[in-house]
Each structure stands twice: as C-alpha cells, then as structure tokens.
C-alpha cells in the first residue's frame, strides 16, 4: 500500500539496481525518443533485446513486469483497435462501412502495441530497481539547469522527498478515519454511485484537517531545526556516478544511433 506513488520497488542488489538513478532516468527519456524513430522490424528486435537484457540483469522475475502492464492494458487495446480499423491502405483484407483492415493498418497496430510494450517495460525496469527517494534525487539533479529560470530546485526536491515520506502516514490516517466513520455508520462500499461519492465527504474533510495539522507541526519542527530555504544547505545524501554508468550510457547511445540511421 505504501509504495503507491512510484510503483513497486523490488529490493535487490543487481547490476541494474546499482546503476545511478540519473542514468536510469536519462536512458528512459532517450528510449522514449528513440522508439519513435524506429523504421523496421529489425530495429524493434534490437531495442527489444536491449530491454530484455535489462530485465535479465535486474534479476527481477518477468511476472512483476507483466503486472506493470496490466493497468495500461485497456489503453493499449483501445489504441491498437483504432489503428487497426481506421488506417486505410492499398492492400485491404476486410471492409465493412468505414471499418477497414488493411496491411498498413495491421503493421501500424503492431508497431504501436510494441512501442507501448517496450516503453512500459523500460519504465517498469526503472521503478522496480530504483527506490522512490533515489528517483526523486535523480530528478532533482536533472532539473538543476532550471535554476536559470528561477525554479527553486532544492525546495522542489525537498517537497518531493517529504511528500514521499508522508504517503504511508496519510494512508494510515485514511484507514483510521474510515474506521472511525464506519463505527458511526457510514457505508463506503454500498449504494448508488451518488451515495458512495457522498460518503467520501466525511472522509475527505477530516483527512484534510489532519493533513493541515501535520503540515503545521512539521513546519514548526523544520523551522526549529534551522530550515530557511533551499539555499546554503549542504547535502547528506549524494549520488555517485560510476564507470559502469558511463559504459551503460555509451552502450545505449551507440545502439540508439545504430537503430536511428
């Protein structure tokens, strides 16, 4: 329950786990860009092998990746069906009104499905092998250039890490309030949609109140421990870019260039 935001971290000590979160983020972003430049089956095969390699080196069972796929299944299916029936082409296999299944449509639909599949596998690889906090640290590093446009990067990073830290606490709080309201006769699980939405009000308002209380307490504690703003702070947690990160990046860039030309 408490790993809600960034998916499900799978503890481990594999090669992929030990890669720098910045590297994993960069590779993910590059990957999404590269995947739209693919032209033929061989390119998909190569990128597919890259992903497969990552999965193998992560030491995480493929089952967890398939689980990551499940919430996206309907979106994939919907897009694939659209592509399949609404792409006109020269070789038509089947037609009924505006619905056409053509050779081009079939190929496009398969490509789209493959793109989805690969992107989801790649991002699941990131979330399964990287702790949420490390992802937040990596993000902070990558958005540093935005300081130039006056974005308070350090504050944003602290906010992110505090938000992550309080997810389980707010979950607890929600359960507590739900139980308290159930004891007073609120029914969260039955009735019409309208009734159920209405039942959420006695949940949301106390939850909001208690969040504000927590925020006030936390602010007091932070100020009393000398927090002013993000500037002039030193860092306890640091990221270490190692040789294996450079090599992995180099390898990925070479593969990317190879498939794009």
């Amino acid at each position: 329950m408490d790993k809600l935001i960034f998916g499900r971290y799978y503890p481990g000590d594999s090669f992929v786990h030990r890669l720098d979160p910045r590297l994993k983020l960069i590779v993910n972003i590059l990957f999404i860009v590269v995947i739209f430049f693919l032209k033929n089956w061989y390119d998909y095969l190569i990128l597919g092998s890259v992903v497969l390699l990552g999965v193998i080196f992560s030491g995480v069972s493929i089952r967890f990746f398939l689980k990551g796929l499940r919430p996206m299944l309907w979106l994939i299916l919907f897009t694939v069906i659209l592509q399949l029936f609404f792409t006109s082409g020269e070789t038509v296999y089947w037609q009924w009104g505006w619905l056409v299944i053509s050779r081009e449509g079939l190929i496009n639909a398969t490509y789209i499905a493959l793109r989805f599949l690969l992107i989801i596998f790649m991002s699941t690889l990131l979330t399964l092998t990287t702790q949420p906090l490390a992802i937040a640290d990596g993000l902070e590093y990558l958005i540093r250039p935005l300081k130039a446009i006056k974005l308070p990067v350090n504050d944003v990073a602290l906010m992110l890490s505090i938000a992550l830290r309080f997810v389980p606490k707010l979950m607890d709080e929600t359960t507590k309030i739900m139980n308290a309201q159930r004891a007073r006769g609120v029914d969260f699980n039955n009735g019409s949609l309208f009734k159920r939405v209405k039942a959420l009000i006695p949940l949301l308002i106390p939850l909001m109140m208690s969040s504000l209380d927590i925020a006030t307490d936390l602010t007091t504690a932070m100020i009393s421990r000398g927090y002013r703003d993000g500037e002039g702070r030193s860092r306890f947690r640091i990221l270490k870019w190692r040789q294996r990160d450079s090599w992995t990046l180099l390898g990925f860039v070479i593969v990317s260039i190879a498939v794009m030309i």
Binding site: L133, S161, I162, L164, R165, K169, D213, I214, D217, L218, A221, M222, R225, G226, Y227, R228, G232, R233, S234, R235, F236, R237
Partner: peptide, 22 residues
C-alpha cells in the same frame, strides 16, 4: 510522526546539519 522530516533515519538526523551547511 510530525517532526520526522527525512525519508530515512539517517536522513532525518542529518536534516538540521544540512540546514546549517555542515
């Protein structure tokens, strides 16, 4: 609960020192 700023025990202990730029 409401005074625990860091994401882990060690991070929380370091928070005050980070503020003072140690």
């Amino acid at each position: 609960d409401n005074q625990f700023v860091g994401a882990t025990v060690a991070d929380d202990v370091a928070f005050g020192m980070e503020n003072n730029g140690i």
